[in-house]
Design a protein around this nucleic acid. Structure first.
Lengths: 213, 213
DNA sequence: AGGTAAACGAAAGCCGAGTTGCATTAGAGT
DNA sequence: ACTCTAATGCAACTCGGCTTTCGTTTACCT
């Protein structure tokens, strides 16, 4: 019970550790099998009851292999998170109206949170980020990337004169995302369509009034 | 490693468990000693490295006593959280202007988050809420109580005609709190005064426009 | 095709968290 | 004060996660 997210610093991409010298063949197959098994186990029994032994069994791999390459359970999850975030995101909405685009983005965010693939890992990472700097950094990487991927919505609104020129696009996205995550993580509710529409309205209103510069 | 926040359902206030029949004297002293030791250990070594043995040693209590009364480490933290949240909150700001009041409340929220007493436990509870329904429920209790304690700010604004009559006071508070928590937990930053002022402006603007009804 | 060593699998051992039984202490009521 | 028993301390025990060792497989280079 002593190490909750104490990943050895060689976790994600070690240096001279197993998996680096011969990244192909069996090594690659095992990596994929373990990550798949980890995701499946997480979805099935939850984070708390997920143990390395089960992942190893499901992946058809020896526990010692996992411990050597990932250190512990959280090392696997970290690797899983970094792998999943590397996947491309869906196309951005572009209707020519900021509020409509933001509402669509809001729905997309909720959809991602609900997905067993990304949403699950993201929630776990969120929880771990409170407890350990390494998870914190990984989460930051993901969040920053998401904002970068979506802030085009606000940039286009600025370009067509819908928003003040000095508007910070990232701030617009964060203003939309904040209440969604607040609902999801803090109050533990899934925002409904009315909520998402309102969140989009608030963000749009604030941006139009030059509050997000 | 199998049980991260699997508190037995008898955790906070059991039924026929130790601590219920003779709540005074040694029982009370031990309870206080354990909770104090838990808080001190958490602040010192962090959540991950906090173990029951250390808490027991610091409290001058046998580990078996803790296991019998709290079940496990998270049971202690849960009890700690419920105890801390029972403490009275600071007086509400009442300047006669909604935006000013909200800005003051925003500062108060950040101050609480930064306090080693409440902030630390609250963070841990946030993390745990993602993983277990019991922690989720405790967190909801705390959040609901906080909103109830502070929504007077919005109610007064409605009363003096600064906001539409159908405004939902709780929604105003949540609109202010959401970006603060987003900063704190998701991006991992401490909001500065400019941020808090902006959050207050956005919430005020949205409420005035009747978006929070 | 052959050689080298990285990566793996199996099994044994270690270590510490968590549990339990029993003797002792000390609340709470009489 | 006296009694009863809840609550505790102590210590032995169990159990499972994690580590280590060693022989085997196999990816990669020549």
């Amino acid at each position: 019970m002593q190490a909750e997210f104490h990943l050895h610093s060689e976790s994600a991409t070690p240096e001279g550790a197993p998996g680096t010298h011969r990244p192909g063949g069996r090594t690659a197959r095992n990596r994929e099998a373990v990550l798949d098994a980890a995701l499946a186990t997480l979805a099935e029994v939850g984070y708390a009851d997920t143990c390395v032994q089960d992942i190893a069994t499901r992946a058809g791999v020896a526990p010692s292999t996992i411990y050597r390459r990932w250190g512990n359970r959280d090392g696997i999850i970290l690797d899983l998170a970094l792998t999943l975030v590397a996947e491309p995101v869906a196309a951005l909405p572009d209707t020519g109206d900021l509020e409509t685009d933001l509402a669509a983005l809001a729905h997309a965010i909720v959809e991602v949170m609900q997905s067993p693939r990304i949403g699950l890992v993201q929630s776990i990472l969120f929880a771990a980020a409170v407890q350990t700097p390494t998870a914190r950094q990984t989460l930051n990487t993901i969040i920053t990337r998401r904002v970068e991927d979506t802030k085009g919505i606000a940039e286009r609104a600025v370009a067509r004169g819908e928003l003040p020129a000095d508007t910070d696009p990232a701030r617009v996205i964060n203003t939309l995302a904040a209440p969604i995550y607040h609902r999801w993580f803090i109050t533990g509710e899934t925002p409904d369509t009315d909520d998402l529409t309102r969140f989009a309205k608030v963000a749009t209103l604030a941006a139009r009034h030059g509050l997000l510069s």
